[in-house]
């Protein structure tokens, strides 16, 4: 039982990060119908930028996070403006190819600027942590749980109550009608990219703090991908919950069945789930067109 709890809790701790990363994928897919294959790379880019900032100035964790949130938003807007907007009017597939190209570019740029050696993201929370009975959680892991909760709540409030958020849902539902009503769809897309990049930035800073940096950090984006599929590509909240599910599942399968299963258990689960619910656990079944 203790072993089970241990595995579950540490699974949640990594799962919340999958959840955060997944929310970014889902938001962009929901708003623009594009799967952003560069999401993990954007996350990595910002975590390296965080490294540079943290090495130049001594900032407390929250200060660093705040600076990175601003930088991420700008990174998101720039990427949208430079790489994605020119693709408007092309089919979605071409845009997805652009994100793949972008991913490869970012990987190269990161190695060029910061080198290929692993780095530590210096923050003031370091190795501190809290003991809960038999489980020990790092402060950074606790922050990760809190930040996922905060992002989920923030997204909910944004999508439900802000005009831009409602416009984003409207655009996701019917783009041409959104145009007809005078919604500035280009603007909506740009904001979606900015928010997704901010979420990527938060997950990047967390990953850097918890596990350190390396030029393969982008693979965490792939690891989180089953969560997005499981949640239903277009469900931002589904991605958050599924992230936790996948994290726990990976840990349990590794702990009870064996090494190596960790990497594939997420993908195995989505195979099974998609057979039963092709639109994911929380996704929208193809809405009937009246």
């Amino acid at each position: 039982m203790d072993y089970f709890i241990l595995l579950t809790v540490s699974g949640i701790a990594i799962g919340v990060i999958y959840g955060l990363i997944g929310m970014g994928y889902a938001l962009i897919f929901k708003a623009t119908s594009v799967v952003n294959f560069a999401h993990g790379e954007i996350m990595m880019l910002i975590s390296y930028m965080a490294f540079s900032i943290a090495s130049s100035w001594t900032l407390p964790f929250w200060g660093l996070l705040l600076v990175c949130v601003f930088i991420s938003a700008i990174v998101g807007l720039v990427i949208e403006r430079v790489f994605i907007r020119p693709m408007l009017g092309q089919d979605v597939f071409s845009t997805v190819m652009v994100t793949i190209g972008l991913a490869v570019m970012i990987r190269a740029v990161v190695v060029l600027i910061w080198g290929a050696d692993p780095l530590l993201l210096p923050t003031d929370i370091g190795d501190s942590g809290v003991e809960f009975g038999l489980v020990f959680l790092y402060t950074s892991q606790l922050y990760a749980i809190g930040l996922l909760a905060f992002c989920v709540l923030g997204m909910w409030v944004f999508l439900r109550f802000s005009r831009m958020g409602v416009a984003m849902r409207a655009t996701a539902a019917r783009e041409t009608t959104a145009l007809l009503m005078g919604i500035n769809v280009t603007h909506v897309y740009a904001i979606a990219w900015a928010i997704a990049a901010v979420i990527a930035g938060i997950s990047g800073v967390l990953l850097g703090t918890i596990y350190g940096l390396g030029p393969d950090l982008w693979t965490q984006g792939l690891r989180a991908f089953p969560a997005v599929i499981l949640g239903g590509l277009d469900s931002v909240f589904g991605a958050a919950i599924s992230g936790i599910l996948i994290g726990v599942l990976e840990n349990l399968s590794e702990g009870y069945i064996g090494q190596g299963l960790k990497e594939i258990s997420g993908f195995l689960v989505i195979l099974v789930v998609l057979m039963i619910r092709p639109y994911g656990l929380f996704g929208t079944p193809e809405i009937e067109r009246v």
Binding site: A173, R174, L179, L180, I287, V290
Partner: peptide
Amino acid sequence: PDEIVRSGVVMVPEGRQLFEPLTVEENLMM
């Protein structure tokens, strides 16, 4: 399109084309 709406011309599309997942009030606010 948004400039055209601002200039006072708006269209109700064929087949209504509501934003189905949104509430009625959200549709109207859009």
